[in-house]
């Protein structure tokens, strides 16, 4: 096995499964950065993650105290996170998650045959709304991506795109008609992004949708989605189905991108002004020296 040798990526925290979908003391298997892992929750709901061991196959009942060698773990935003290298102290903050009137839920964990960075770019992209999410997040002929701002926040080392606006016929389950919807995008982690979108019900505040990518290998991810919504009207099933529909529309496009790894050489693809945030993201990955899931630019 080649495995991941990119130190930047190895030292990151990655979400590997939703707490809600993990049964305590039952073993679940997964793959992170080409390493076979197992995980579960103990009796009091504390997660533990270990390198896969034939003694505890997936689905078996386990006494968690038997597992002596475990990987670092954290619980955040409804997911179990782990790290294969030397983890940083904290996972990036999403302050809104703790607001008492929000409904937080994991919308889905979906496998996609594409690199993580390609999936992040898709998440940051508005220009595809009328074509890929026709009649939901966009509709022809309203195809314009208006000017927006992108910067790399110095204090937090993350990309922030603001003043993003796009015409949407039905922006969420709470919308009834078309409107210009405002977005803010953050990329606080090479494999995670958070978007804020004006809420149909409360114009002063924003719904939050976060994407946590679990790289299975360089060309395959599991995409975990967190919703932190101000929607009081719809039940969780409807909200989940909405996001799953959106993601299901992106998946075949993502899986038809060639190459699957994100090329960081500026001459690999042709950017336009609407791709400002993607251009910033590619530069940011280059400046961090990321090599996993990308084709680094030849120097």
């Amino acid at each position: 096995m080649t495995g991941c040798t990119d130190p930047t990526i190895l030292n990151l925290w990655f979400a590997i499964g939703a707490e809600q979908e993990t049964t305590p003391c039952i073993v679940s298997d997964t793959v992170l950065l080409e390493e076979d892992l197992s995980f579960t929750l103990d009796r009091v709901g504390q997660p533990l993650v270990w390198r896969r061991d034939a003694r505890w196959p997936a689905g078996s009942v386990i006494d968690t105290s038997d597992v002596s060698v475990t990987l670092p773990v954290k619980q955040a935003y409804g997911y179990i996170w782990t790290c294969l290298g030397q983890p940083s102290a904290d996972i990036f903050p999403i302050e809104e998650y703790d607001e008492p009137d929000r409904r937080n839920l994991n919308a889905a964990s979906i496998g996609v045959n594409v690199s993580g960075p390609r999936a992040i770019e898709n998440f940051l992209d508005m220009g595809h709304f009328p074509y890929v999410h026709t009649d939901i997040l966009g509709v022809q002929p309203h195809t314009e991506v208006k000017e927006y701002d992108v910067e790399i926040s110095e204090s937090r080392d993350e990309i922030v795109a603001t003043r993003c606006r796009f015409f949407q016929p039905m922006a969420s389950t709470a919308s009834t008609g078309g409107a210009d919807v405002e977005y803010v995008y953050r990329v606080p982690h090479p494999y995670c992004s958070v978007l804020y979108k004006s809420s149909g019900q409360n114009p002063q505040r924003m719904d939050v949708i976060a994407l946590f990518l679990q790289p299975v290998n360089q060309e395959r991810v599991r995409a975990h989605m967190l919703l932190s919504m101000l929607d009081e009207a719809n039940d969780e099933r409807v909200m989940r189905r909405f996001q799953q529909t959106i993601f299901g529309q992106d998946k075949p496009i993502l899986e038809n991108q060639y190459p699957k790894k994100l090329p960081l050489d500026p001459r690999a693809e042709t950017p336009i002004r609407a791709d400002k945030s993607a251009v910033a993201y590619r530069r940011w990955l280059s400046s961090k020296g990321v090599t996993y899931g990308v084709i680094p630019a030849a120097n």
């Binding site: 220009g127 074509y131 314009e144 002004r273």
Partner: peptide, 19 residues
């Protein structure tokens, strides 16, 4: 993906809907 149009024969791009 983004509705870019490419012309018969030349394969030149004739329209970028985002702009």
């Amino acid at each position: 993906y983004h509705g870019w149009r490419y012309a018969n024969r030349t394969a030149g791009c004739t329209y970028i809907p985002a702009h």
